[in-house]
Design a protein around this nucleic acid. Sequence first.
DNA 1: TAGGCGATGACCT
DNA 2: GGTCATCGCCTAC
Length: 195
Amino acid sequence: MSTHDETDVATRATALLGRELHAHGVTLRITEVEAYGGIHDPASHAYTRTARSEIMYGPPWRLYCYRSYGIHWCANVVTGPTEQAAAVLLRAGEVVDGLDLARSRRPGVPDVRLARGPGNLAQALGITGDDLGSELLDETGAVHLGPERPPVGRVSAGPRVGVSRAADVPWRFWVTGDPTVSAYRRSPKAPQASE
DNA sequence: TAGGCGATGACCT
DNA sequence: GGTCATCGCCTAC
């Protein structure tokens, strides 16, 4: 993959930070994302083209949902470019509207942790496989993005959480110092970091 | 068709 | 800090 492609993927991912996501009565301000480069990224589901990853080969700005470890749902934004099948995993955010609804979906959890971690984020927003393929720029849809926002002031970058391949690629981005960001945990299967 | 594994989270010490 | 539940996908027979 060319350097230009890598920059592109990172730019599209960081552009989602600070942007709002509306889903099933809850509004979330995105504070943490991970970029997945698609066909050239060994850590991406699109690295092998299957029925599950097919949606990433389609038009951008659609929702890619997948089930992780059998129990949790994770939400991704297909960012394109289409031929690259790139997507961005939404890892954490701050609930800014529909707080009571989010709390009812995550009983007993402090507000700051309502949408911390990709599985928890999807749960707080009520996102499941039924939302697969949602048009995220369609304001009438049950799941959609808010308008573009100016870039967030301070953004940190680091390796992606829990991936066993390409574990040292710094494609996790978060709003520096934000309390809703999840903790980093390296995959137990990932090779030793080469420092 | 069967076996292994994972872009996780919760609970334990 | 560490361990483990849990099941849909993917790959190899």
